[in-house]
Design a protein around this nucleic acid. Structure first.
Length: 266
DNA sequence: GGGTGATGCTGAG
DNA sequence: TCAGCCTCACCCC
């Protein structure tokens, strides 16, 4: 389930589990056997998340680059772990914890030039700290594309995926078909803050929950049922949780997007 | 137990 | 524009 919040959460949890100690690395599936052999036994110095990318820094200067893509998954265990699945591309372990990685789009050791090239294609990351709202605004101002498509473009903002793009536009009352550069500065700023708030919450909670408890008639966030966590994502044909208008969907940037024609109307 | 869809992205055409 | 990559959680029997 990899949008930016998931990636940053993995970075944090794995940092706590593995950084600072020598790590045993191997490839149960075999497809990353050579890379794992390079890393095996090295101390892991740090793990950095940027958008949907992860960078692992090792004591001899190697950088491991991982991108989960659509299917990739991590599992982290403390204490006595189950054996890895046959599809596990990379396993990393120290005495206390083990991390299994399966199904990544990218798992490779890269040099500094490759990393520079990669990072130059990424827009500001709302979870990376620093004041990047103005960069986001500048990026939007240059685009003709609909805001719904712009939010999936990782060079505009790094870390937003298909769930958050639909949900943050709902919460800001913006029609996804609005051309990005037509948003005024107040809307752009509010959207940036909204993205950051929602991603931060997702990182902390380990799940995407955008609905306000009051909108579904419960008191606490912990009372929100699993299937009522979102306002519009995959809710085509269902009534809007706020106004009852039927949720619409359309394809935008090769993926479906959903919105409420009333709450996100003109 | 089998079928399916998914929170992503690239590169060929 | 679209096929291809790659795994597994979840749904339905």
């Amino acid at each position: 389930m990899p949008e930016g919040h998931t990636i940053h959460r993995h970075a944090r949890l794995q940092r706590e589990a593995l950084v600072g100690s020598p790590v045993r690395a191997w490839s149960p599936q075999g497809r990353f056997a050579e890379g794992a052999a390079v890393l095996d036994g090295q101390k892991l110095n740090d793990i950095e998340a940027s958008g949907k990318h992860l960078f692992y820094r090792w004591e001899l200067g190697d950088t491991l680059h991982v991108h989960l893509g659509l299917f990739g998954k991590y599992k982290t265990f403390h204490g006595d772990p189950p054996p890895p699945s046959e599809a596990t591309r990379l396993a990393m372990a120290n005495g206390r914890s083990v991390v299994y990685l399966a199904g990544p789009t990218i798992c490779e050791i890269i040099n500094p030039q490759e990393e520079d090239r990669l990072r130059s294609r990424l827009g500001p990351d709302p979870l990376a700290g620093g004041r990047s709202g103005p960069d986001f605004a500048g990026n939007l101002a240059r685009r003709q594309t609909p805001i719904g498509a712009a939010l999936l473009d990782q060079s505009i903002v790094a870390g937003v995926g298909n769930v958050y793009r639909a949900e943050v536009l709902f919460k800001e009352g913006i029609d996804p078909r609005t051309p990005a550069r037509k948003l005024d500065s107040a809307q752009t700023r509010a959207l940036w803050l909204r993205i950051r708030t929602e991603l931060r919450r997702g990182e902390k909670e380990g799940a995407i929950v955008t609905v306000a408890p009051t909108d579904i008639g419960v008191r606490r966030r912990s009372d929100i049922p699993r299937d009522e966590r979102l306002y519009v994502y995959q809710r085509e044909g269902l009534p809007c949780r706020r106004c009852g208008t039927v949720i619409q969907s359309a394809e935008m940037a090769n993926r479906l997007i959903w919105w409420c024609p009333f709450c996100q109307g003109p």
